[in-house]
Design a protein around this nucleic acid. Structure first.
Lengths: 156, 156
DNA sequence: ATATCTGCAAAGACTTTGCATGAGA
DNA sequence: TCTCATGCAAAGTCTTTGCAGATAT
């Protein structure tokens, strides 16, 4: 059984309660969906998926819940240049490995890669230290993305 | 006199003509503005600036021109998470050095840094090679951004 | 001359807000 | 019970599109 797929009280119950937030059906639904996919879903896609098991859900709630989860650090919000925000479970949760993204500028394909991340991490740590000192920033996060053409699109 | 500030036929005349594009007042105005600033202007800001010297200009034209210039590779389009696209002259033009961005998540301040870019470049080259081979991508570009709190915002 | 470019107005797409109802603890 | 959360509808923001008139070459 894959990591993070076990049943029982969901790992996020404590996180929500600890933050003083209620455990509601929409929140459960959204976290369930994000836990089970490896895709980078948009609000609309999450809405459609959640709608199947809980038809009463509204798109507004999706947006509000996603904002909350981002703020709590449970999920990440990305902009891949296709005009809509996309979300994924934060690293470290559910056995998710830290990864970066490789994007096809022609078809929009997104590849998560975990290779080379160790080397990157080393450099990033140094860079963060240097930048922190020089510009007096407290760095909390970074974003790395590569853009190019995937195999299929190269042939067209 | 700073590099790139000299008068005479603008460096972009040839680029536009070579691409089969006309040399128009709006295009001149927009390129002039982007050449003279070190800020990361939004379409609206460029519009307001251009409007001062050429009041007849329309916001639509700003968007269309920016799209054209991005497509030609003369400028870069960025998303800094504030809901509007921001633009800057491409590296290598007008003596612009290759740089990355450091963003304050509280006040939106953007710092261009050129330090550490050499080290980053080395790693990125290796990573690009590895990714190209493993995922069969032809990588054309990359994005690196650091997020954190600037000095002022740390104190609040 | 004529194909390209522009400006206006309207439409489009995604996201946010106001407010009354409903539900978790 | 009593806040907090939700859903609907409407509004907001940035960006794109349609089209007739203007312009560069």
């Amino acid at each position: 059984m894959p990591r993070g797929m076990k049943m029982g009280p969901r790992w996020w119950h404590g996180k929500l309660k600890g933050g003083g937030y209620r455990l509601t059906i929409p929140r459960e639904a959204i976290l369930n969906i994000l836990s089970k996919t490896s895709e980078h879903l948009s609000a609309e896609e999450i809405y459609m998926s959640a709608h199947k098991t809980y038809p009463a859900i509204g798109l507004t709630t999706i947006y509000r819940t996603l904002d909350l989860l981002v703020q709590m650090g449970l999920i990440f919000k990305f902009d891949f240049g296709d005009k809509r925000a996309r979300y994924e479970l934060a690293e470290g949760l559910q056995g998710k490995a830290h990864h970066h993204h490789l994007l096809c500028t022609a078809c929009g394909k997104i590849v998560d890669y975990t290779d080379f991340v160790d080397e990157e991490k080393e450099l990033l740590n140094q860079t963060e230290k240097g930048l922190s000192k020089k510009y007096n920033f407290r760095i909390t996060n970074h974003l790395i993305q590569f853009y190019g053409l995937c195999g299929k699109c190269q042939m067209k």
